[in-house]
Design a protein around this nucleic acid. Structure first.
Lengths: 216, 216
DNA sequence: TCGGGGCATTGATCCAGATCATGGCGGCCT
DNA sequence: AGGCCGCCATGATCTGGATCAATGCCCCGA
């Protein structure tokens, strides 16, 4: 689970934290390992991954600045986390969380609100993964990602993607090839522009929204 | 969002509730409508549905006895709910919830725990919908459904299904035909038995678990 | 400036599961 | 008891996206 808290609490939190940096690509949470610590992202973005034994992987989300990671339900991490690029993290013990929650009861409400938001997002993603076409998935992603990411793009219609095509594919339940082809078709259809691989411009938001909703 | 609370709170809750019955098939929560009330299931099971404009639907979960429904994040229901069979419900105003939470601060913690459990389940379902084959999806469903449902089957290996094949299909992101064929193959392979359409026996749990994990 | 390695794109072919079509069964209502 | 209707099973065919296979491009380091 991950989420955002207010600055006031973050200050108090930081007193209990150990700051650390991780290099690009580092897997700093491993699915199935003992969940003794949790993290707050202070710089960079992580991909959150669930895997099958044969290597198939599903990215269940991306965690940007401010998000909490590793607040597992059980004693074991339900998913892994890997740095998309260089990251900065604050590391806490789970005991520290209990202490903080006792100190700031309002935190409980905040965590609940965050969990609900994530649940809503997860339910939307189930609809996407279960019933949408590749084209609809990409359109939905391009519309929803900027909101989900903590650092929105420079303008409304410029999307800066810190992840690779393979990550997008694993997030949308597709293959790299299909993501690439589908983006090309959206580009050909003048719905988006792709000045560089990591940057996408929305040229026709209304059409993109229609596609995302399955109306085209 | 839905979940289970303790008897003590349920007693207090019931003082604020309006009991009501709904017939099989009734859509008692409509996706997109104003979320002014919420419900607690006291008998029966509901399917929770998200739909696309053209009629495609994804069932995001099943809510059995004890589950809360309609605790929307926004003022609008994020998904609909329909009775699988005749149901009994307790109806509350959202104002009543605020009142209850103030009265029992511990409720907040409970709701958080419930939301987390559902989030974990939702993430597991994302892996299923994004990356598993039809066979793996059915195996996972047969193993996970009895735990998710509040009323477990008579014995460990007997699963009683209150929903149709179409519901299972919409839950697993498949078609009715694929669900039917896949169950037939599992039956032929002696992994399960299907004495009647609504009842499934697990004959080889170990194999079913291997299939669900993607090892076969 | 050049070379190499990791992305990304694009093309050709394949296949799991969707779609289309039919028949059978079981429960329920009259 | 009979008939009807909704659900389930199964067969035939189709197809969106996966898989297999090159090639291109960009960035970075020496």
């Amino acid at each position: 689970m991950c989420g955002v808290v207010e600055d006031a609490d973050l200050t108090r939190l930081s007193e209990m934290a150990v700051e650390c940096e991780v290099a690009a690509g580092t897997a700093f949470i491993e699915e199935g390992q003992a969940a003794d610590t949790f993290f707050n992202v202070t710089a960079g973005t992580a991909r959150l991954i669930k895997s099958l034994p044969d290597g198939r992987r599903q990215i269940i989300g991306f965690a940007g600045v401010g998000h909490f990671l590793g607040l597992a339900v059980s004693d074991i991490y339900a998913f892994g986390a890997e740095a998309l690029g260089p990251m900065r993290l604050c590391r806490f013990s789970r005991a520290g969380l209990r202490q903080l929650l006792d100190e700031f009861p309002v935190m409980e409400q905040r965590l609940l609100a965050v969990a609900r938001d994530e649940l809503v997002a997860a339910q939307e993603q189930m609809l996407l993964l279960g019933r949408k076409t590749a084209r609809e998935r990409l359109a939905s992603f391009l519309l929803a990602y900027p909101r989900a990411a903590s650092c929105p793009a420079r303008t409304e219609d410029v999307i800066s993607l810190p992840m690779t095509r393979a990550d997008i594919a694993d997030y949308l339940g597709l293959t790299v090839e299909t993501v690439s082809r589908t983006l090309t078709r959206l580009r050909t259809g003048r719905v988006i522009a792709v000045p560089s691989a990591a940057m996408i411009l929305i040229r026709d938001r209304a059409t993109l929204a229609s596609i995302a909703a399955g109306e085209v």
